[in-house]
Design a protein around this nucleic acid. Structure first.
Lengths: 166, 166
DNA sequence: ATGTATGCAAACCATTTGCAATGAC
DNA sequence: GTCATTGCAAATGGTTTGCATACAT
């Protein structure tokens, strides 16, 4: 399957086409932000991005960052994750390889699922009418560590208030 | 496969066990909120929930709503969606049937994917070590309507600034 | 030249927090 | 009776907005 690790040039081209199609301008800021997104491994917040851009000597204002993040999401180059409640968590899109995240609802630890079989299964869905850009899956549950802790607590409590059944 | 439409009683039981295991109290508010979540079809915000609870004559304060929403997420009874930027969008968990959403990044229209084949594919992933509660997938892309509009615009622009290639 | 995008700082509003009062245990 | 939970209202801070300036077209 298509599995080549997308280059920055490809993403820039994609962004350029998007801007063109929507009659938006190709500014230095927008491409600097795209590059920063591309170069950031893993998830990040707007604040992280702003810091990164300062580091590479291309500081961008907060307003512009929010505005551009919105554009990048529309251009299918950036995803918003459902993690955290206060600050929005973003991550760049990996068009060729669908991503799956395992999320522990108790400790909020997040793991990227590697298994190719799972990813292939997700890839297999081909909707009519809808032009797919990328796919993201979340598997929610409890991680082993938290499960152990919860069981321990439950046992302790059952010792205090024993139930008639078993 | 397991496909029975979960009853409120089951969810209450699950919540009760969660509260017990975490040494949290079983208050009227918490169960009223669980019921409101259960009875709300589709996605909703905290504000929506608060309105709903007012309607059923069980008004709950904002702080409590946020607090309980967090607990319900931890208890695997509620999911947070990655939609919208300002207000968080929630939806109740459907433990037996994995959910998939088709999201248009341009107009933000969201469709629930029905196809059983896709859902079965997602179900097939069985991680070792991790206790799965539920699975959610998002297929991002462009809906037919937006695609048509973008193509129209592109064509119009190409007429104005013709490129040498084709 | 024209008008959109940026920077800056103020405004907004969803979410969080603190404290006194309530109610689960 | 004890202490977590609630309600209320104020504080917080992520996100949005408005306007003058810069720059892509």
């Amino acid at each position: 399957m298509s599995e080549k690790p997308v280059t920055l040039a490809t993403l820039e081209q994609q962004f350029r086409e998007f801007l063109l199609a929507n009659e938006l301008r190709q500014t230095r800021e927008r491409f600097a932000i795209l590059r920063a997104v591309y170069e950031t491994k893993g998830t990040f917040t707007i604040e992280d991005l702003q810091e990164r851009l300062k580091e590479v000597k291309f500081p961008v204002s907060t307003g512009t960052l929010y505005n551009t993040a919105l554009l990048l999401v529309k251009a299918n180059l950036l995803v918003r994750h459902p993690f955290s409640s206060s600050t929005t968590v973003f991550e760049r899109v990996y068009p060729n390889q669908p991503r799956a995240y395992q999320v522990c609802n108790n400790c909020h630890r997040i793991t990227i699922i590697k298994g190719q079989d799972f990813n292939n299964a997700i890839q297999s869905y081909k909707p009519r009418q809808f032009t797919v850009s990328h796919r993201i899956s979340y598997v929610y549950g409890i991680c082993p560590k938290c499960l152990r802790e919860m069981r321990k607590k439950l046992k302790k409590l059952q010792a205090t208030h024993p139930t008639p059944e078993t």
